[in-house]
């Protein structure tokens, strides 16, 4: 596993001021920052000595960041965090479905960016380790044992239906990441189910079993118009 404090970050961004801010902030956290100002430079940087993570601006002078993401995904699973001033939900869904790991809308605070980088790096590391499927997951008050299919909240066992369990497990394995509706539906319900409301109803039931106050969730967060995210702090 890469030590996250010395991870190499490829920053693909054409705005000088934005690059300056990110470089300063990331260097201060001991990240190595490689800079690219367009898609061509980014491609070169990735094929040379691959970074540990890519921060990608969507509006590049020589092409769309989403195309770059799709292209990269055909041969690499490098974590990609999209940084974009396009705040519309459609853009987020498109980027995530194209294979981006996360999406941050400009403007954002540096703490939020660092948190997302941590999540993405951890997720990438976990995906590489073989015994991922058997690790006990601990997220906030939640404890999930994939081997015994046991879920506990503050050490109290919770009974879930098979669907609820699969949904919770999928979110927990991707804790901190935004998962789009389509991604969750495909993973938990299998291909052929596209009714978002099926997912919403299941999520509501899950919240009533897990959240202390389902009307003010702390664990299972809604990303309106995009999907869901399990909070991992």
């Amino acid at each position: 596993m890469t030590d996250s404090t010395h991870a190499r970050i490829l920053l693909v961004e054409d705005e000088t001021q934005m690059r300056r801010f990110l470089r300063t902030a990331l260097n201060a956290r001991d990240f190595d920052v490689i800079e690219a100002t367009n898609a061509r430079e980014a491609r070169l940087a990735v094929t040379g000595r691959p970074p540990d993570i890519i921060l990608l601006d969507l509006g590049l002078p020589d092409g769309d960041g989403i195309d770059f993401t799709r292209e990269l995904r055909t041969w690499s699973q490098l974590p990609i965090i999209v940084l974009s001033a396009r705040g519309r939900e459609d853009d987020k869904v498109m980027a995530l479905d194209a294979g981006a790991d996360d999406y941050l809308t400009k403007p954002f605070g540096v703490n939020e960016l660092l948190a997302r980088i941590r999540v993405a790096l951890r997720h990438a590391a976990r995906a590489q380790s073989r015994n991922d499927q058997e690790t006990i997951l601990r997220i906030g008050p939640l404890r999930l044992d994939p081997v015994r299919r046991e879920v506990r909240i503050l050490d109290q066992p919770v009974t879930l239906t098979p669907l609820e369990y699969r949904l919770l497990l999928y979110l927990a394995q991707n804790a901190g990441r935004v998962l789009t509706h389509q991604l969750i539906l495909r993973h938990v319900w299998g291909p052929g189910t596209s009714q978002t409301h099926t997912l919403r109803v299941c999520m509501a039931q899950l919240r009533h079993k897990i959240e202390p106050d389902p009307a003010h969730p702390r664990i299972l967060m809604t990303e309106m118009g995009v999907g869901y995210r399990m909070c991992d702090d």
């Binding site: 509501a204 009307a215 967060m221 809604t222 309106m224």
Partner: peptide, 27 residues
């Protein structure tokens, strides 16, 4: 789309949590 009303409230409260940490609400 069909959406639980509670989910809309929940998402709104999360959005406002930073500026309004105290949210006295009766539903």
């Amino acid at each position: 789309e069909w959406i639980p009303f509670e989910e809309l409230i929940g998402a709104a409260r999360v959005q406002l949590a930073k500026r309004y940490p105290e949210q006295p609400i009766t539903m």
